[in-house]
Simulated scan of single mutants.
Amino acid sequence: MDLLPISGDPHRLAARIADLDQEVRRIFPLQRFLDAVREGELALVRPRLWDDPREDPASLCMLDGRGLSPVKGQRQLADYLAPVWAQCWSLNPGSDTLLRAYSRVRLGDDRRNTDRDNEGVIVTTTVRHLLAATEAWHGDGADVHAVVGGVDYLDDGEIWQRIVNICNGEHGPGFFQTVQGRAEALLWKRRYFAHEQEVRFMLIGRACSEEPPVPDVRVMRIDPNSLFRSISFDPRLQPFETNEREAELRAAGYEGNVVRDLNYQGMLGLLEMKKEWPDP
């Protein structure tokens, strides 16, 4: 595919995604998700607000031309980068590690979760549905490109070497002024985070300028019943509280599939014996 200039017509692309219908999931804060369903809005944020201080590695680089003749001096690579608002999803089919990272359940004496403010809800969709949700952002006059891409996990040195190679390659720093280049810069992450198996949903601005000041959050209109394929609540909740959460979700307007997560349900196995065994 030809490189698409940032300033060109708005595009919707998938990058490093083999199957657009593969399920992806995300753990939303419970109250934020209820608000998203009720209001029909999804919030994407600037990556610089995320916990990892090395997100968007290209924005952390300086171009050093002091060894050139004539000397060119230094310039930050960030000057070539359009603003991006993003949201993290995952190909991970579910794990206790991710659940505990993004959802807190502490049962009190009454068996209720005492930390509802930090409780999460597991939401699934597909890449195809994420791209379809940006339809209103893709028409004439749209000020963003929409890209969904799979994250490539690399050693630190590999990430920096990729940036060096690009900046000294055919397109120079201008590579990052293309839709594909700007997306690529946000799809390189340290192996330290590889367990996340992350897929990034990104809205990429069509201009590199930070003037007027670029907001840290972009809110896009969605139809929750079209975008979200299934919902499940933290499996550590007691059944009566799961029922209450589902009632809240239905009251907010969600009409889709609610799945009971049985990963924390106790089990009793009945073993059919084929021969006599001694008493204990």
Rank of each mutant, 00 (worst) to 15 (best):
D2Q: 14
W137L: 14
C208V: 15
V71F: 00
N168P: 00
E210I: 09
L203I: 05
W85D: 00
V259L: 05
T242N: 04
E255C: 14
P83F: 00
E276N: 10
G174Y: 10
F193K: 11
V24N: 01
I122V: 07
D35Y: 09
S90K: 12
P53S: 04
F28Q: 02
A18C: 07
R32T: 10
L203K: 00
R75P: 06
R221K: 13
V164R: 15
L186H: 12
R206H: 07
V121P: 07
E255I: 12
V24P: 05
P93F: 01
M267I: 10
G256H: 04
Q180S: 11
E119C: 06
S59G: 13
V259G: 00
E23I: 13
T134M: 12
R206V: 04
D35Q: 14
P47A: 01
A146F: 01
P53A: 01
G65F: 06
W188Q: 09
G40N: 08
V123P: 06
Q31M: 14
R48Y: 10
M220T: 03
M267R: 11
A207Q: 10
S59T: 11
L4R: 12
L30P: 03
E119H: 04
L91A: 08
P47G: 03
G253C: 11
L63E: 10
E158L: 08
E211D: 15
G157W: 03
A207Y: 07
E272D: 15
K274F: 09
T134P: 10
T124R: 06
E196V: 04
E246Q: 11
V219R: 14
T97R: 14
P47E: 08
A43Q: 15
Q197E: 12
R106H: 08
G108E: 11
N243L: 13
T242Q: 11
R111V: 09
A132H: 07
L98F: 01
M220P: 00
Q87N: 07
D234K: 12
A251R: 13
G181I: 08
R116Y: 09
